[in-house]
Design a protein around this nucleic acid. Structure first.
Lengths: 217, 217
DNA sequence: ATATTATTTTAGACAAGCCTAAAATAATAT
DNA sequence: ATATTATTTTAGGCTTGTCTAAAATAATAT
């Protein structure tokens, strides 16, 4: 059996290894998990013994195939639950993360199959992130940062990187939801900020915000 | 904060104190929780310090008002989730218990409110058990055992005591679901068995089974 | 009234998952 | 090439929730 803590570590390792393409380092993981490096080392040993990760002392960890299966199954559950919360229970976009963090650990194959069916086998969650299938296959989206678009370019928002509640609230307010089309009016080279239009309304976005919005390539 | 284990103990204490009307004894609790008496004593001390229960050494425990609130909130969540699983996801009656045991521990007031609303504020769960309201008020049903009915009497099934999966499967097969009307045709005094009719079909029920079916008084 | 039996509690241990402080190793700067 | 700094690991400890074995208490039978 795999514990809740173990599942969370594997999920974090997966996300971190998607971001940077190196091995995941102890300190990165400690920060992501909101814990101390020493605790991470302890857990790394356990996960390594159980063959969920491969681990070279001082040089970080990588998921094994077995570990990736677990991570993707947790992510699948997380994203299906988020979809449920938004589509069926009427949660807003920015409220679902915390609850889904809990729901993703419910152990029941049947439940997830039924939920998937009930939701009509969605391919992406409310943030636009792809939902892995039963076998852990995940469709890599062709995504680029809004920040990289040139003035005049328009594209569909597919996801938001950060899951910070403040950011999500803000994006929700200005209508920057996945599925929406966003157009770059102008971009200031000196600070990376940009003026964009969504729903025919204009907004100024800071560099930080525009780097957190992902659009179709 | 209250832990998962603590919630489960409080729930068990509540159920046991509903059954027998005495204080709940260490051994009863150990059996219900599938653990050893020594472990129960340990936990009892913790719950007592936190004032969820009152405890007199060697003479068992009782829930305090504070403890009852927690227990009823867990039971409310359990029953709402069971309703969801059956009504929305198409689980059958006898499959929901295990999953609901996990779902009942999700911490999110908002989630439960939304779920309640989504289900149309149900008053009873799929087993016919009453669902406590937000304030922990629970409507005591006027229930009697089917076993106590006299030949010729008919009444509506409101609940099933045991949550043993075998029993639930059997009852499902013969159509003995909450809401159904059941009529006693005959009763054998020497072994307590009875012949009944449900949906105009006749069945023989052993004493054990007829004591597990609760009907409107 | 006392001895036997059943129940409950105490004592001491263990695994999981975390911590702090100190030691070991790697990376970087001179 | 070596010293300094940053990162990671080790060592030892804590809490939660469990266990077994032994001691204490209560219930029951004679």
């Amino acid at each position: 059996m795999i514990s809740l803590a173990e599942e969370n570590y594997l999920k974090s390792i997966y996300h971190l290894s998607q971001a940077g393409s190196q091995s995941v380092l102890t300190n990165e993981l400690a920060e992501a998990m909101n814990t101390k490096a020493a605790s991470v080392t302890d857990m790394i040993k356990k996960l390594s013994t159980k063959e969920f990760i491969s681990y070279e002392k001082y040089y970080g960890v990588n998921l094994t195939t077995k570990g990736k299966v677990v991570a993707l199954s947790v992510i699948r559950k997380h994203r299906l639950w988020e979809t449920f919360l938004v589509e069926k229970l009427g949660f807003s976009w920015d409220e679902v993360h915390e609850v889904a963090e809990q729901l993703e650990h419910i152990q029941s194959k049947r439940l997830i199959e039924k939920l998937d069916e009930y939701l009509g086998f969605p391919k992406v969650d409310p943030h636009g992130d792809p939902i892995p299938d039963t076998n852990g296959k995940i469709k890599a989206l062709q995504q680029v940062m809004l920040a990289s678009l040139k003035p005049g370019a328009a594209s569909m928002i597919v996801a938001v990187k950060d899951s910070d509640s403040q950011l999500l609230k803000y994006l929700d307010k200005i209508g920057a939801r996945p599925g929406k089309t966003i157009k770059v009016i102008e971009r200031e080279e000196y600070d990376g900020s940009m003026e964009v239009s969504i729903n025919n309304q204009r907004f100024f976005l800071s560099k930080e915000v525009s780097e957190n919005i992902l659009v179709n390539a």
